[in-house]
């Protein structure tokens, strides 16, 4: 299967942090008895893949299965649902979006006061989760509770779309980090050169929790985190504020809010990319963070690199990436893993 086909199927699944079951089941189904895996106590999938050669170093790849979303906190007397965000969501992307609530995907809309009825002051303020509710079309608490329960997770209604030139730009919710999962599935399918451990982890968006436990169990010497990272390359943002750019290849980080990355691996990534002609860029703003933050301080310390896809509108219903970057991350991850075994 192609990486983008894995990605499309993965993005169709709901997996808000703490509720990653559907994504986990899909990943296990793709291992189809051929690969040895364990599900750890928190729900992460750890796959130990035998390579064509035994490995000199214990290497772990990691990507997270969970996505940002919402969680129902209260069912109001008028049938509307109060909610909290799960993971960092800018409240400006909430109002007027369609959502699906719970396992049965009950349709709803994120609702508030009509624009005509706002005061001048309210018009200047972004509506946030304190004032917004989810309307599922029920007029009282009783009928709403027949459809949903407190604690149900909520995803944006956002179908995977291919658009732009040659339909090679993709838009969906949950690309963060199903893209990393898709690349790992492709790497497993292709069977790596050396023995490698692949961790599909839970709860990244609520504090890098799954990776902390999984890294302990996997016990690696080296780790490569496959992620998506903020591309702010829109016309209103200046060059130094763009972080990275869609279409300019794999993003290799030197530092983010959780990690100062291993310098040798950082350089190795750029050398490898140059040698193999893989488009590659760095992250030009110290912002965000990923599972590397938990992994590099696991046990006695793990030498860690992050290779990410540049992704616009991260943590929104409409994350945007390009096919060429997906390929670049896949190729760089593969080359880098072989190179690490030469150390």
């Amino acid at each position: 299967m192609r990486t983008d086909e894995y990605l499309e199927e993965l993005c169709a699944l709901a997996g808000v942090s703490g509720d990653e079951g559907a994504v986990r089941d899909y990943i296990i189904s793709k291992l189809s008895g051929e690969f040895e895996y364990t599900v750890d106590p928190l729900g992460s999938v750890i796959v130990r893949v035998k390579g064509r050669n035994p490995a000199k170093h214990r290497l772990m790849f990691s990507a997270h299965m969970d996505e940002v979303g919402l969680i129902v906190t209260f069912v109001c007397s008028d049938g509307c649902l109060k909610f909290s965000s799960v993971g960092g969501i800018d409240s400006r992307v909430l109002y007027g979006k369609r959502v699906f609530v719970g396992k049965d995907r009950v349709p709803g809309v994120i609702a508030g006061t009509a624009v005509h009825n706002l005061s001048d002051e309210e018009l200047k303020t972004a509506p946030d989760e304190k004032t917004l509710v989810i309307d599922i079309g029920c007029s009282d608490k009783e009928s709403a509770e027949k459809l949903v329960r407190q604690g149900d997770t909520v995803i944006f209604d956002s179908e995977f779309a291919r658009f732009g030139e040659n339909n090679e730009t993709y838009c969906s919710r949950a690309i963060d980090d199903r893209a990393g999962c898709a690349i790992m599935l492709k790497m497993i399918e292709d069977v790596p050169e050396y023995d490698t451990t692949f961790c599909f982890v839970v709860q990244e968006e609520v504090g890098l929790r799954g990776a902390k436990a999984a890294a302990y169990t996997a016990d690696p010497e080296f780790a490569i985190v496959l992620e998506t990272t903020t591309a702010a390359d829109i016309p209103s943002s200046k060059a130094e504020k763009r972080v990275c750019e869609v279409g300019k290849g794999a993003v290799v980080s030197f530092m983010d809010r959780h990690t100062l990355y291993d310098r040798e691996l950082y350089r190795m990534a750029f050398d490898t990319a140059a040698e193999k002609n893989i488009p590659c860029q760095t992250k030009s703003v110290v912002a965000g963070g990923n599972d590397a933050g938990a992994i590099h301080v696991s046990r006695g310390g793990v030498r860690t690199a992050a290779v990410s896809l540049p992704c616009r509108y991260l943590h929104s219903p409409s994350c945007v990436i390009e096919k060429s970057d997906l390929e670049a991350v896949y190729r760089l991850a593969k080359e880098l893993s072989a190179r690490i075994q030469q150390l």
Binding site: I89, V93, A161, A232, I234, L314
Partner: peptide
């Protein structure tokens, strides 16, 4: 097809 921009919470 098009997507209206937004700036992610990280920034």
């Amino acid at each position: 097809y098009g997507v209206l921009t937004s700036v992610p919470p990280h920034l």
